[in-house]
């Protein structure tokens, strides 16, 4: 079981309120991602849940029980840190065994669980090495191993992939998702990378300046961003946002169109512009169209076979049904 409820949770560092009163419920077995730009308070929120920081006000309930004042160890949560935080003086086996030893688990049971975790994470042949002798990806797996042997009610991940290179990151992303499918344990995952959020989450919590901007499934956020911030943050490449006459035409202060919802044509269309930089990925092509009079550049995603050159004059036509409209406060209309 791992239902976590935050009620009016607030965090102040001295005078500065980094997290204004905040309510959130994370259901048992959910994979929740906290996403937001750096400094948005997502890590602090995770640390409050972990018990590594004291809340200034409000309550944290784990499975309905108030855990606000419980020590980290008592909350039954496991955490994977950004730096992995492996014990450098212990072998991999001892690292994984540490939480079990602390919990007073019997030796045979310890061994059984370590073997199982090591097998699941492909660490069996590294058990007697020290963390210093492992690669980044392997260390990451040890950190995860140390978390899963405890059989916690929820896992907390604090930007676990940010120290890995791009290729490994994709691999580990899949492994963590698979782990979640297998264990069906609640997972809270903090990242600044919206791609990680979109690909892994059941539920995404978008944070900015300690405030929750929107909570929803990845598709929810993609299709119906609640405001300009979420619209700009979710989706890659970023949504094109512009205001002025073009927006007024749709009765909005600001409108947004995703690059994939704009047709590009050499013959004719709604907005005229000139091709600036173009990127050909094979599967897709991205064009950065300038001189449209709407915004500095408009990003357009087109089919991989479309070939246009720098300086070509083009016409852009948005998919009318997929235009997002926002009012003067930046909220969705």
């Amino acid at each position: 079981m791992g239902q976590i409820t935050l009620q009016g949770v607030t965090k102040r560092f001295g005078e500065v309120e980094v997290i204004p009163p905040l309510d959130l419920t994370i259901e048992d077995g959910e994979f929740v991602v906290f996403v937001g730009p750096s400094g948005c308070g997502k890590s602090t929120l995770l640390r409050l849940i972990a018990g590594l920081e004291d809340v200034s006000a409000g309550d944290i309930l784990i499975d309905g029980k108030n855990a606000t004042d419980a020590s980290p160890a008592r909350r039954g949560l496991a955490m994977v840190f950004q730096s992995y935080a492996l014990y450098p003086h212990m072998s991999v086996r001892k690292n994984i065994a540490f939480p079990l030893k602390m919990a007073g688990v019997s030796k045979p049971e310890q061994d059984r669980r370590i073997e199982a975790a090591a097998k699941a994470l492909n660490l069996t042949s590294y058990l007697d090495r020290r963390p210093g002798q492992l690669s980044g990806g392997q260390r990451q797996r040890v950190a995860i191993g140390r978390a899963i042997v405890r059989e916690p009610s929820a896992f907390l991940f604090d930007e676990p992939l940010s120290n890995l290179d791009a290729a490994l990151r994709v691999g580990m992303r899949l492994e963590i998702s698979e782990l979640h499918n297998r264990l069906k344990t609640t997972m809270i995952y903090v990242t600044h990378d919206q791609v990680e959020a979109m690909t892994m989450a059941d539920k995404i919590v978008v944070l900015q300046a300690g405030r929750i901007e929107q909570v929803g499934s990845p598709l929810d956020l993609y299709l119906r961003p609640k405001n300009v911030f979420v619209a700009g943050f979710i989706g890659s490449p970023r949504m094109n946002l512009f205001s002025g006459a073009a927006a007024a035409e749709y009765g909005a202060m600001t409108i947004g169109v995703r690059p994939e919802h704009i047709r590009i044509s050499g013959q004719g269309g709604k907005w005229k512009g000139r091709v600036g930089v173009s990127e050909h990925l094979g599967s897709d092509s991205f064009f950065y169209v300038e001189d449209t009079g709407l915004a500095e550049t408009i990003t357009v995603r087109a089919d991989g076979e479309v070939t246009l050159h720098h300086g070509d004059t083009v016409w852009l036509t948005p998919d009318e049904g997929k235009i997002h409209r926002f009012d003067t406060n930046g909220d969705r209309i």
């Binding site: 840190f81 540490f98 602390m102």
Partner: peptide, 12 residues
Amino acid sequence: EILEAARMDGAT
């Protein structure tokens, strides 16, 4: 973080 990890792991 290592000390925090220990704390999370249930170390007194």
